[in-house]
Design a protein around this nucleic acid. Structure first.
Length: 806
DNA sequence: AGCACGCCGACT
DNA sequence: GTCGGCGTGCTC
């Protein structure tokens, strides 16, 4: 029977975002399974592209003539039924292409690279042969183009002396070995045996092996033949010529045997609160319920131990576990705690691995050698089977949402997979996102709380320093007097200090240095952003624009200026104030090199420095007992951002760094420097009071019609010419507005903060809605209609539930 | 994306 | 008259 494959091709456009039918050559019929990658000819020139087989049918839907699959790229499917389905739904939900989703779900090594070559197929004059082909019989298209010989090649093509060939390659070289398989049936082999001379012992032996293989339907490696029967490759080649067997190359797994012995740890006794939370989750695991738990517990309350014991319970049931942590929290310590408990059953996927290493780790999971997967965002697509629990630690982290296409949220994918496998999902955080906390309120998620630290230790004392006051008293440095005193004190005692510089919102808004006033938009209750290109203050939501103020409208101080400082500058300042202090700086500049991050942290852990100065990246996974003082140099830069999540982000950051101080037997102290000491995010963080912050922030979101009260979608249009982007945005609004519900709010269009990025102008709208069943189909329609313009350099990005608006 | 088909300007 | 510009539309 003829079989046909439905293939998603690697051509990321809206028009080609659908399966194409291909004829499966008989030779591949037993081989091809949905989820495998294949090479197919596509388009007029039948250039070869990579494709994913999504289905196999015995009747093609396409009426025209079908092309054939030209090669099978995998031995086993790289995507299973589950992931094929998830990818398809994700494409629909995130307004992206199926091919992009499938590629995102796989290690980069499996994305194909393409090569175009010109090959000689007929005799050409000798001089041409040398100056065009350099005496070879094929050259790359790129080389021909670079040497300017394409026109000549076109001539030869017309004469059918050359052809263009396309080569599809994997990014990494898979290790392959040569294997033999019989080409004749058992009986035919028997006949061959009868025809042999009596002295041809080796050949008889080979035929015996082939007969065995014929019965077992297996292959044997040429290496094994040599080893077990002393059959040399020459005999094999001979046999191949006689047509007894064929030689095939088969991929073998690389051996990633790196047995680093981790010190094994044992489960710790649980506190009663931990026990209660653990039991609730354990029940769901046992009963295979797809419940979503929100595990809320302050730093040090023992969330990790609950994860570990839940995973242990899942492994006991012969199931697997998937755990996501933010990329920056994927530290050696973190890995150690998992490998320490579960040993080699743990696979870790992180950005520090090379493409090949990531692929090997992925293979290890795929062939079910690893039962526990720990990794960042994209690990949610790890090919684990029979999942028993999915854990997302630090669930509030915005890095779980991918900021490029497909703009998926790992949390959504986790819940999807939880449903598919009928297993619980645990969202853990000390400061849950408002969305998740609100869902717990509505009993969509089950709230589990760990109110106390395991060691019953009090949370560190948080001192809020009013920087306006410091300014008034003539202190113009980045360090307030209380912070300076604290630093001096710790250095004297030989204790360590962490200083955090909040880079968020660096230099993009103006604030009064005397009273902390930040210029708000008269229409939107959100601060205005400084646009240096136009020298104006702009509102990102409504487009309101005004001049940059020269004095504070409230206190009339002339010290109103843009706010923000770099780590390097702070380091210099620090060294001037404390010439004897040893400082380690950690920011993008000092951690760019691979492994630098860990090296710096290890050095700090070994007490080679007194002060660790850094940006956001030091807020996480930093667990040194000797740190007794944490200073936040500028707590409120995020507060000045025109983002409705800025209070939430500030609260989360402050709470997070507070957790870094004094975790051992030393009492910790936190000094928070701010120009907004009375801001509720700062106030509630000082008191470690999430619940009241949550209530307050919910009110604010309710007032401003923001999530979780509204759903949001942002649409961005960009083009090299500003008016084209702006006009398209207008067009989009005109297209959408008539069909939207009365209570739906459309903000914009407004130009983006950095209006021109990569020579492109950006315009954006934000749609806030409660119920818009037609919005998704309309946005899909919009993308379809805009195809022509998109091919002319216009870009349209649709982001459902965007994380930021800057 | 990339290739071919198709309809208007400066050339042998 | 033709060669070739790149606008338009399709790819199983």
């Amino acid at each position: 029977m003829d079989l046909f494959a439905k293939v998603i091709v690697d051509v990321p456009t809206m028009q080609t975002n659908q399966p194409y039918d291909y004829y499966i050559p008989t030779a591949y019929q037993d081989q091809i399974v949905p989820g495998m990658r294949v090479e197919v000819p596509f388009g007029k020139g039948s250039r070869k592209v990579q494709g994913f087989v999504v289905n196999i049918v015995d009747q093609p839907a396409f009426e025209g003539e079908l092309k054939k699959i030209t090669d099978v790229m995998d031995l086993y499917p790289v995507l299973n039924e589950e992931l094929l389905q998830l990818g398809k739904e994700m494409a629909d939900k995130t307004f992206s292409f199926q091919i992009t989703c499938y590629q995102t779900m796989l290690p980069a090594a499996l994305k194909s690279t393409y090569e175009k070559k010109i090959r000689l197929i007929d005799e050409i004059p000798e001089d041409h042969f040398f100056d065009l082909f350099k005496g070879k019989n094929e050259i790359s298209w790129q080389e021909a183009e670079d040497r300017g010989v394409l026109p000549k090649m076109a001539e030869l093509k017309k004469k059918e002396a050359v052809e263009t060939v396309y080569i599809v390659k994997d990014k990494v070289n898979k290790k392959k070995i040569r294997k033999i398989e019989p080409r004749l049936s058992f009986e035919q082999l028997e006949e061959e045996k009868a025809g042999l001379r009596k002295t041809a012992k080796k050949q008889k032996q080979l035929l015996d092996v082939l007969q065995q293989l014929s019965l077992s339907k297996k292959r044997s490696s040429t290496e094994a033949l040599k080893k077990d029967y002393a059959i040399q490759s020459a005999s094999v080649r001979e046999a191949e010529k006689k047509g007894w067997l064929r030689i095939v190359e088969e991929e073998v797994y690389r051996d990633p045997f790196e047995h680093i012995d981790f010190e094994r740890t044992k489960p710790l006794p649980l506190t009663s609160a931990q026990q209660k939370a653990f039991e609730a989750i354990h029940h769901a695991v046992n009963e295979q319920r797809d419940d979503v738990f929100l595990l809320k517990g302050v730093t040090g309350s023992g969330k990790t131990e609950i994860y570990l014991q839940t995973i242990a319970a899942v492994l006991e049931k012969k199931q697997t576990a998937l755990m996501l942590v933010p990329e920056i929290a994927l530290t050696p310590q973190m890995v150690k705690s998992f490998k320490g408990r579960f040993g080699d059953e743990v696979a870790v996927l992180h950005s520090g691995l090379s493409v090949g290493e990531k692929y090997d780790e992925w293979r290890k999971i795929e062939r079910e050698e690893a039962k526990v997967v720990v990794g960042a965002r994209s690990s949610i697509f790890a090919p684990v089977k029979n999942i028993g629990v999915i854990i997302i630690d630090e669930e509030h982290e915005s890095s779980y949402k991918q900021s490029e296409n497909p703009r998926y949220h790992a949390r959504d994918a986790a819940i999807w997979r939880g449903k598919y496998h009928s297993c619980p999902v645990i969202l853990g955080s000390a400061t849950p996102s408002l969305e998740s906390r609100a869902r717990a309120q509505k009993k969509v998620y089950q709230l589990l709380e760990l109110p106390e630290r395991v060691n019953k230790k009090a949370l560190p004392l948080v001192k809020v320093v009013d920087m306006r006051q410091e300014m008034k008293e003539g202190n113009r440095s980045s360090f307030s007097i209380p912070l300076q005193d604290g630093i001096r004190d710790r250095i004297k005692k030989g204790e360590q200090i962490v200083l955090l510089l909040n880079r968020r919102g660096y230099s993009s808004f103006v604030m009064c240095r005397d009273c902390g006033f930040v210029l708000p938009c008269p229409n939107c209750d959100i601060s205005l952003t400084l646009h240096m290109d136009t020298r104006t203050m702009k509102c990102h939501y409504c487009g309101h624009e005004e001049a940059i103020p020269h004095q504070c409208p409230v206190c009339h101080s002339p010290k109103i200026r843009y706010y923000g400082t770099g780590t390097q500058k702070v380091q210099e300042e620090l060294e001037a104030v404390f010439p004897d202090a040893r400082v380690i700086r950690m920011d993008v500049d000092t951690t760019r090199k691979k492994g630098a991050h860990e090296k710096l942290l290890t050095a700090f852990g070994n007490q080679e420095a007194d002060i660790l100065l850094g940006t956001q990246m030091i807020a996480k996974g930093l667990d040194f007992p000797n740190i007794t003082l944490v200073g936040v140099l500028n707590a409120d830069t995020a507060l000045g951002l025109p983002d409705f999540r800025s209070s939430e982000k500030t609260f989360q950051l402050l709470t997070q760094v507070s957790g870094r101080a004094g975790r051992a037997d030393l009492i910790g102290e936190v000094v928070v420097q701010t120009f907004n000491p009375e801001h509720y995010a700062v106030q509630f963080a000082q008191k470690h009071d999430y619940d009241h912050f949550y209530q307050m922030e919910m009110n604010v979101r309710h007032q401003g019609n923001y999530p979780p009260y509204y759903f949001t979608v942002s649409i961005t249009a960009s083009h090299e010419e500003e008016r084209i982007a702006a006009r398209k945005m207008q067009e989009i609004i005109h297209f959408l507005l008539p069909h939207l519900q009365k209570d739906t709010i459309v903000l914009g269009p407004t130009p983006k903060a950095i209006a021109r990025v990569n020579k492109k102008y950006y315009y954006q709208i934000l749609i806030k809605y409660k119920y818009e069943p037609m919005l998704k189909p309309m946005l899909h329609q919009l993308l379809n209609q805009s195809q022509k313009e998109i091919s002319k350099g216009l870009q349209i990005a649709i982001d459902s539930e965007p994380m930021d608006f800057i």
